[in-house]
């Protein structure tokens, strides 16, 4: 049951990620929003380590994640507030990413939706950015790292 992650851009300011997980919705929900469990799967960018992870899962509850690097602590922070929480179904939160210096690098609204069918849960994440430029920037992030590896892979595909 391997279903690859689908990434689509239905509008100029959104990115939609859709992925199926071989587990009931209740567990996917728990793994997605429980701080000790988020530490397991929210992989940091290369060279970063997660130092803080808080997630108060109710409308008005706060989300806070921080990472450190060899150069700075914090090197990057993510802060947001939940605006809607329907357990096991839907959660919406704001999200602002900032550098250690406090300089904001981007903000978005992230909506998580969970659909279960036959023990398989599909999670759909809709990210809505402030502008097309911000959306494009997010899509392009990480383009430099592993670029060479991707090129080689694509060379194989495109011939």
């Amino acid at each position: 049951m391997k279903k690859p992650l689908q990434v689509s851009t239905p509008t100029d300011t959104t990115i939609v990620l859709t992925r199926a997980f071989d587990a009931p919705r209740r567990l996917v929900w728990e793994a997605t929003f429980t701080p000790e469990l988020m530490r397991r799967w929210m992989l940091p960018p290369p060279g970063f380590t997660m130092t803080t992870c808080r997630c108060v899962l109710r409308a008005g509850g706060e989300l806070e994640v921080a990472w450190k690097s060899d150069e700075a602590d914090p090197a990057m922070t993510l802060r947001g507030v939940f605006t809607e929480v329907i357990p096991h179904e839907r959660a919406v939160h704001t999200e602002t990413m900032a550098l250690g210096s406090g300089q904001v690098v981007g903000s978005l609204v992230e909506q998580h939706e969970f659909f279960e069918e036959g023990g398989v849960t599909t999670m759909r994440i809709t990210q809505t950015y402030d502008s097309k430029e911000a959306r494009d920037g997010a899509l392009a992030s990480g383009m430099d790292e592993g670029m060479e590896a991707c090129y080689q892979q694509l060379d194989g595909v495109l011939g």
């Binding site: 992925r19 392009a140 670029m147 694509l154």
Partner: peptide, 17 residues
Amino acid sequence: LWTESFRQSWEARFEEL
């Protein structure tokens, strides 16, 4: 490549999940 690297970084997270 542009969207592929974004996809891969999320896929890596989802594999941990």
